[in-house]
Each structure stands twice: as C-alpha cells, then as structure tokens.
Design a protein around this nucleic acid. Structure first.
Lengths: 144, 144
DNA sequence: TTTATTTCGGATATTTTTATCCTATTTATA
DNA sequence: TATAAATAGGATAAAAATATCCGAAATAAA
C-alpha cells in the first residue's frame, strides 16, 4: 500500500509530534531507534518532509526535528503520504493505465472508487495529533 | 497499491476470460499486445497464475492460456491478487509492523480497517466474468 | 572565535522488482 | 515419426527502491 519510505515517514512524524508536544527536538538517531528503522534512510525521509514543510528542522547544536505544537491537529496523514509517495495512490489508475477516467475507464475504475474514497477520507481526516495521543496513552505502538 | 506484476496479471486474466468465452486460447504474445505489457514478463506471470490454478494452460501446438468458461463467474479478483502479490494487502500491517493486532495495534490499525475491508469486499465480490463483459461491451478498456 | 553538535546532500552499495533471452519440454498434425 | 507450434523455466540484465557512508554547512555555547 505505502512504500517503506512512507511507513517510516508516518511513524517518524508521530514520534516527532509526541516530543514536540513536550517541547523537545529529536534526532534521526532517536527516531530510528524508536520506530525501528534504518537511521540514514530515515534521515533522508525526514529531509523530504522538511522540504515539503510537513515538519521543521533546526540545524546545529541543540537542533533536531520538530513540528509546531499548535499545528499538530491540522497536519493530516495525507500530507505525509503525498510528500513521500506522491499522489499516485489518490489519482493513479488501479491497473496502471496512463489514461483512465470516466470516459475511458479501466476494468476496475468504478469498483476502485469506493476503496480510494475510503482511503482518501481516512488520510485526510486523521491528524498527527490524535495518532500521537494514542501512542502517549499506550493505546497504540510505533514498533513491534 | 498492486505490483506491476499484479496489474498485468489482472488485465491478462480478463483478456483470457473474454477469449475463453468464445472458445479461443491465447498466447503471451497476443496478451501482451492487448494489455500493453512486456511479453516475457507477462509470460512469467501467467505461469504463476497457472501454478495457482487461477487459469489453465495447454502446451504444444494449438495450445495457449484459457479459463473454464463455466467457472468465470466464480473466479474473483482476490484469487489473482493473492496468487501474485500474496495476502499482505489483506493481513499485513499498514505501517509495516511485524506484529500488529487488536492487542498491539499500530497507530493506524483501527483507521485502516475500513479501508482494508472496503478493498477486501471489492476484490472478493468482483468476478472475472463481469470485468470481461464490460470490456466486450466497450464499457471499459484494457489499455490507454 | 573556536569547538562540538547537528542537519544537508552527494556518492555509492545492496536488495527487490521488473524485464529479457535462450533452451527444454510438450503436443497436435501432417 | 518428424515437424512445427506452444508453454515452462533457468539464467541474466536493467531499473527502482531501500540502505549506507562521508564530508559540507549551519548553529549554539564555551
């Protein structure tokens, strides 16, 4: 469904959110340990999220990654997914046709709509804040 | 969502279905041309579908790929997807956790359920027959 | 201003997925 | 039985995704 890069990006963002909530910046090293991901690769993904302005980075001593605490509830999963995997999962054809729309649909175009809408709805209505809260309260987990 | 291999597998199966309906067997060459896919790679995928008994092959002169005309309505998309991409899209964790269930859920476990159920429902309730009919009647298309 | 710390970004390596090529095997028909 | 037409399957190749390494640039504090 999502690429490894995107999975790491989502988990990393949640961990950053938890810490930003408490005014702490975190490093790729801490993040990778907490979400059980390869550190250098994770760092690259964080860079991409910064470029897309999903999260913020502060260089130099006492720096690290953070998100604006007040924006936590407005940052949606969809932003992270689009930043890393692009919008193919939103707009791309389920069977990979270059051109696939109402006028020239692939065999599963109509059937796929419901799935895509459900996914879209989920991604656009799930905030980093709620995901972070669930981790904090022990309801969900970032690694096995 | 699906791998390229799976996309080819679905489109190939539909084309085979159309032809089997008319009593004709088809070759990887014809299939690849019709669904706009690399021929040799498509042939490998067809082999996999045969091994998983989704479609049938007949070797030698006048051979080719076919499906039992009478079973067309009972062959569901889910069988093709499982044969090629495995059941990860069904059972795998949305964020790639090795262990992710009700007792130890990933951050999106609950939210993901609806999406997965919608997808599962679609795959398990869509038959090769209906997809083939739509192509035959010009409602949908196998290539752009 | 120097130092230690930290992100940035280019280069490279590894693994997986996608794709190609060639030979062996099977089978219907002449 | 010989031949031509097919699929089967192993060996490679190419491309994309995943992962690692290292030096450059930025920055806070001593």
């Amino acid at each position: 469904m999502f690429s490894k890069a995107c999975e790491y990006g989502i988990k990393a963002s949640i961990f950053i959110a938890i810490n930003s909530y408490e005014g702490k910046r975190v490093s790729p090293k801490e993040i990778a340990k907490e979400i059980n991901s390869p550190q250098a690769f994770t760092a690259k993904i964080l860079q991409a999220l910064v470029r897309h302005k999903v999260i913020n980075s502060v260089k130099g001593a006492y720096g690290g990654f953070e998100v604006n605490k007040n924006e936590l509830k407005y940052i949606k999963l969809s932003q992270i997914v689009k930043a890393i995997d692009g919008d193919n999962i939103y707009n791309g054809c389920g069977l990979g046709l270059e051109k696939c729309d109402e006028n020239h649909p692939c065999p599963v175009h109509e059937k796929f709509k419901d799935v895509r809408n459900e996914l879209k709805h989920m991604l656009e209505n799930t905030s980093l804040e709620e995901l972070a809260m669930d981790i904090k309260s022990g309801i969900s987990f970032l690694k096995a």
